[in-house]
């Protein structure tokens, strides 16, 4: 067989290009990590890792950089958002793919795509207009608490709404790819529709559900604008849902203007970014492990 050298060359070039593209993609996270670590190095000259992560004292002017309030604030807001949104997403994905008529599921899918495309600042404004006052006027008084409404709770609620389209989209795709024959098998064995969903389809979907949760977590943990607008941004360790908090992304965004002036502050912000990066990485690595564990069926 004689393949013209021209075609052979083209094949080689394309192969090289795909390799190069893959290499860039693989390199990106490393580049990001190295860049952040390099810039954070200054901070480590005067502080230990333990001090930085577990001290609550944040006074940049005095050279004190305790990230604990920000880490705790971030985790609270994110966990709250996931606790609210994960069950909603799971149940609605099941309904949309298993019970809803085709027309309804089309409408919902379109709505989800629209939600996913709304800029986060819009969610922030909406949160300030509706969620914050509701928390302040109705939710907090129920527990005998006085608050402006700018709180972990508001942040979590706004965030949970923001991540719904992303998690839901993945979940719908996952349930759609489960073959119908599996449901048929379960039904023919005498399972009700819900029993089939609960023990057969959910088991089949489990690795995908975990992946969707991981994706949602990463999005929520890094979300900046909308949370910053409703969470209060007070540097303290929140003790209740109605306390104000100050998540890491908000810290970076709010201190951005000081970045160039003080080298140590710049280094601290880079370290904040590094924490975000590492937490998301660790969380997803853990989930990946669970996914591999559960993928055997």
């Amino acid at each position: 067989m004689n393949i013209s050298s021209n075609r052979r060359t083209r094949d080689k070039i394309i192969t090289c290009l795909t390799y190069a593209a893959m290499f860039v993609v693989l390199l990106l996270p490393f580049a990001l990590f190295i860049g952040l670590a390099f810039k954070s190095e200054l901070l480590f000259r005067d502080h230990s890792l333990g001090q930085l992560l577990f001290s609550s004292s944040w006074r940049p002017s005095a050279g004190e950089f305790g990230f604990k309030p920000f880490i705790v604030g971030s985790l609270y807001v994110t966990l709250l958002a996931m606790i609210i949104s994960a069950p909603i997403c799971l149940l609605s994905a099941i309904h949309i793919t298993q019970y809803a008529p085709a027309r309804v599921s089309k409408v919902v899918t379109t709505a989800i795509d629209i939600l996913a495309g709304i800029p986060s600042v819009v969610y922030g404004v909406w949160g300030m207009m509706f969620v914050v006052p509701i928390v302040s006027r109705y939710a907090a008084p129920l527990f005998g608490v006085q608050t402006t409404g700018f709180s972990i709770l508001s942040g979590g609620v706004v965030l949970s709404i923001m991540v719904v389209p992303f998690i839901l989209n993945i979940l719908i795709e996952i349930y759609r790819t489960i073959p119908k024959e599996l449901t048929e098998a379960a039904l023919s064995l005498g399972a009700t529709r819900w029993e089939a969903v609960r023990s057969i389809l959910n088991r089949k979907a489990l690795p995908g559900i975990l992946a969707a949760v991981g994706f949602g977590f990463a999005r929520a943990f890094g979300e900046t604008m909308a949370v910053l607008m409703v969470v209060g941004n007070a540097i303290r360790i929140p003790e209740s849902l109605f306390d104000q908090g100050y998540p890491l992304p908000a810290l970076i965004a709010n201190s951005y203007s000081e970045l160039a002036s003080v080298p140590e502050v710049e280094s601290a912000l880079m370290f904040a970014a590094l924490i975000l990066f590492v937490v998301v990485l660790l969380f997803n690595a853990t989930l990946r492990w669970f996914i591999i564990k559960t993928e055997k069926y």
Binding site: P179, E181, L182, E184, A185, A186, I200, R203, K204, Y297
Partner: peptide, 8 residues
């Protein structure tokens, strides 16, 4: 069914 679908 046409193809076997074992339960997970």
């Amino acid at each position: 069914s046409q193809r076997p679908f074992p339960l997970p």
